[in-house]
């Protein structure tokens, strides 16, 4: 599984990381850690637009997103 740490990064850096990873690692699961809800929503919408399933698990302060 590819692991990305996008916590605390400004827009659109987390989405660029995800887009980059999806392009370079097609078919692999990607776990992204983010800290802000709008980042989570941006990644969810982007993944849905590009035909990927997304599992979101809120943690203590951060949010874990697994992209399949």
């Amino acid at each position: 599984m590819i692991k990305l740490d996008a916590r605390g990064l400004s827009c659109p850096e987390p989405l660029m990381m995800v887009a980059d990873a999806l392009k370079k690692h097609p078919g692999e699961e990607i776990e992204v850690m983010v800290s802000e809800m709008h980042t989570k929503t941006n990644i969810e919408n982007y993944c849905q637009d590009h035909g990927h399933q997304v599992e979101v698990t809120p943690q203590d302060f951060d949010i874990q997103i697994v992209i399949k």
Partner: peptide, 19 residues
């Protein structure tokens, strides 16, 4: 909606995203 007038063109340039 996360409305942003700068983000509008930025997302088109970087992600081809028109939201």
């Amino acid at each position: 909606t996360r409305m942003c007038f700068g983000g509008m063109f930025r997302d088109i340039f970087l992600l081809k995203n028109f939201n």
